[in-house]
Computed example of a mutant assay.
Amino acid sequence: MQYSGLNEALKQGVTGSGKRPLGMIFCEDQTEVNTTARHLMQLGFSPVLLFMPPHLTLSPDVAERTARIDFEPHHPGAVQRAVSRVAAAAPRRWMHYCYNAEFLFYPFCETRSVGEMLAFHTEERRDAMLTYVVDLYAGDLKHAPDAVSLDDAWLDRSGYYALARSDAPRGGAPKERQLDFFGGLRWRYEEHVPPERRKIDRIALFRAKRGLVLREDHTFSDEEYNTYACPWHNNLTAALASFRTAKALKRNPGSSHDIASFRWHNSARFEWHSRQLLDLGLMEPGQWF
């Protein structure tokens, strides 16, 4: 199904009446659009909404199983407004948002559906899940000049850190159970990344409600949504394996010529398996075993 815009899509009930988690993909270009959509459908998201400019294309199998919405993701604030509007249209529904060439992983995702995982998370009285954006990059930029290669994907196995998130209204005091996380390509090539875009944390899984607003820094207006755990114990976290930063660094004329290879002594080949991300500490199983 294709819609001329989000207004028409919401009017026609694009979110559906089911209880399965809803997925949103914001397509900035053609890179791995179909692969990203298939990945979410395989995890158990339904429906999957594709927000994309009219000139981009979909394979027939993906077009048949998803809802396409004409959209310009590069407009300032467009993604945040769209996520907030979809959240208001389907309150209490679990949702996920990402960009094309980003792939969601959570503990044991190879054998357990996203619905099972979120049911457990809900039982722990959590309405959101912290997600780390883990940068992926092609190992050989001569063969993959756009830095995207599913067959030759690499990631950083170290270099990640967290800083206390300050609360301006409270004189800069640290916010409770909130941290700013850094690492990956945004850390190694920070001279090419604006300071406000260097964080790698995102609340990519959340339970929708009316009045909930996604902010420019990928946090929500409800501060409890931005916490990494409840007050009593550690909770589940997830990861987004993402080519988005590598792709941008190679396409940006200001940084492209400075990068002959993204690989360094702490690079490791990405195994496309949740166990690797768990072993590297890039997501947590919490109390879910």
Score class of each variant (00 low, 15 high):
3 Y>C: 10
11 K>E: 15
14 V>F: 02
15 T>P: 06
31 T>M: 04
34 N>R: 03
35 T>R: 06
43 L>N: 04
46 S>T: 06
56 L>W: 02
62 V>F: 07
63 A>G: 13
70 D>C: 14
71 F>D: 00
73 P>D: 12
75 H>E: 15
75 H>V: 12
79 V>R: 01
80 Q>D: 07
83 V>T: 10
88 A>N: 13
94 W>K: 06
95 M>A: 05
106 Y>R: 03
109 C>W: 00
111 T>K: 14
111 T>P: 06
111 T>Q: 14
113 S>D: 10
115 G>H: 04
116 E>L: 07
117 M>K: 08
117 M>T: 10
123 E>L: 09
124 E>C: 15
124 E>L: 15
131 T>S: 10
132 Y>L: 13
133 V>K: 05
135 D>G: 07
140 D>F: 03
142 K>H: 11
144 A>C: 13
155 L>E: 02
157 R>C: 14
161 Y>G: 14
161 Y>W: 13
180 D>M: 08
202 R>W: 01
208 A>Q: 01
210 R>V: 11
212 L>T: 08
214 L>K: 02
222 D>P: 04
224 E>A: 15
224 E>I: 10
231 P>L: 10
237 T>Y: 00
242 S>K: 02
244 R>L: 07
245 T>G: 05
247 K>I: 06
248 A>N: 07
252 N>E: 12
254 G>K: 09
268 A>C: 14
269 R>H: 13
271 E>N: 11
272 W>T: 07
273 H>C: 11
275 R>Q: 15
277 L>W: 05
280 L>Q: 03
282 L>G: 07
282 L>M: 12
289 F>T: 11
